[in-house]
Nucleic acid binder design. Structure first.
Lengths: 204, 204
DNA sequence: GGTCGAAATGACCGGACGGTCATTCGGGTT
DNA sequence: AACCCGAATGACCGTCCGGTCATTTCGACC
């Protein structure tokens, strides 16, 4: 049993090494341009070695994406379960998300790169599953706020869609700014701004 | 002169035929998977013929994208210049956009496909130029509304970003719904909903 | 040190794709 | 009808990439 565990551990270590390499290459080149060769070099193994642990390119990318998305969801769950008013909770969620993507920009690039993907259907599926979970969490938040009469008679699911759009946009712009070396606005300001618009609207 | 014009007209006709074919293929397969061979078949010409009119794949896609984006901008301009209150004007813009993409779904798919592109830099540039123009138009609209004291002391450019995010999201969801054969909500309702959220916010 | 089995790998294959070129084709001119 | 010239094309090339396989490498066990 000790031996077997050892082998398994070694195998899992190799697997995650390759997945880490895949994430790095995806972050650098995007999903479509992430070649097996480059992933292999990044992982410090031969290309054929990848095929010892993954059936084909699709399985590697699918499992890598699922891992990444799980990390994201897990990270956000702790923000979603915080107590407080709708404004407080929404701000916390946005803030946590900005922070997470600041620290894992490669993950965000992968996330975005998968958003509109026309290649492997499995990737789209994995992405849309995790995104659906995320939007659903937002919907819960609005449902609770509705119960507390913090919001009027609006469809929580529709609100969640709009909110996720706005948050997405903030992150995209933040990443683009960052790559231009001018992150002028703090996370806190950006989070407060978008939550303010969402809650109070544009009107005077 | 008559002869020359005739030749030019013929040439331009061929050009636009090929560009139309390129748009169709892009709409069907996405930018990355749009091969010269498939575009040629779609256009009813030999692959080599494309190279008579376009230097290479990049030039074909760039010019095709620019054409498409010009159509989009032109179409929206007439909506942007309508008179009325902020709410009326914004609703008109959103409505026109929904209608335009309903009628030119392939154009939207291409537009979205180009949004996050990691291939040809020229394409990204073309897209971001037209998108920048669009967001700028939105910004003008908010600036005017600010002058008319319809909105408070908020940065029009930032508002335009948020608004474009929300509108984009509505369109994406609309297209996805449509491909599932269940367009449950009318354009008017969807436009009114997103404008309502933008102007009045979520709060009760 | 020798043996064995699984892991790792370099070399290779088949196919797809962008791009080129010599040849063919077709309509206008004489 | 013969000729001409540019447009159109089929055949072809080099490259890249995913995937395979026979061979080698390496650590555990005797």
């Amino acid at each position: 049993m000790g031996r077997k565990t050892k082998e398994e551990v070694l195998g899992e270590f190799r697997c995650s090494s390759i997945q880490d390499a895949a994430m790095a290459v995806i972050a650098r080149k995007g999903v479509a341009e992430a070649t097996m060769q480059e992933i292999a070099v990044e992982a410090g193994v031969a290309k054929a070695t990848i095929y010892v642990y993954f059936r084909d390119r699709d399985e590697l990318l699918t499992r890598t994406a699922n891992c990444a998305f799980d990390r994201l969801i897990t990270e956000l769950d702790s923000a979603f379960t915080l107590p407080g008013t709708l404004q407080e909770r929404l701000t916390a969620v946005v803030l946590r998300q900005l922070q997470f993507f600041d620290e894992n920009r490669e993950l965000f690039r992968a996330y975005i790169a998968l958003t509109h993907r026309e290649d492997a259907k499995h990737l789209r599926k994995a992405k849309s599953q995790s995104h659906a979970r995320y939007v659903q969490r937002l919907g819960q938040l609005f449902t609770e706020a509705k119960s507390a009469h913090e919001i009027g008679d609006l469809d929580p699911a529709a609100l969640a869609d709009v909110a996720s759009d706005c948050i997405r946009g903030v992150i995209v712009r933040r990443i683009e700014e960052k790559s231009k070396e001018k992150s002028k606005t703090s996370r806190e300001e950006q989070a407060a701004f978008v939550v303010s618009i969402l809650l109070r609207g544009i009107r005077a």
